[in-house]
């Protein structure tokens, strides 16, 4: 997946409202790492269905950060996790890492 996270959706939504944009960045900077941590924890504890619940939340953040391909991948992965299959974990973690790095730049 070559796509890069960006704030174009958030900026559209803000429509020039800088206060909202900053508030939103603060919220996603708080919420994303916590969800990423929970995801990794469930995977390490071999809890695929619990991990699926977190993937469900994380995929919305992919959308908000305009990562359409990552969102599509997460939709499939969530289904696989519900079936107990964690094979797509590595690729999912690479998406999480990409976003983690991006959030440090904003």
């Amino acid at each position: 997946m070559k796509e890069i996270p960006n704030l174009s959706y958030v900026r559209d939504l803000a429509a020039g409202d800088g206060v909202f944009e900053q508030k939103f960045i603060r919220i996603i900077k708080e919420e994303f790492p916590e969800e990423a941590r929970k995801y990794k924890q469930h995977i390490s504890l071999d809890e695929p269905r619990a991990a699926a619940e977190v993937v469900h939340k994380l995929k919305h953040k992919f959308n908000i950060l305009s990562m359409t391909d990552a969102y599509g991948f997460a939709v499939k992965y969530e289904e696989q996790l519900q079936l107990g299959d964690m094979e797509m974990d590595e690729k999912f973690k690479s998406i999480l890492q990409k976003i983690t790095l991006y959030l440090k730049t904003i």
Binding site: A15, D17, F20, K23, I27, I28, E31, K57, H60, I64
Partner: peptide, 16 residues
Amino acid sequence: DDEATARAVVTQLCEQ
């Protein structure tokens, strides 16, 4: 909504 980001998005939409 259990996600803070989602609540922020809808709040912002309403504010417009």
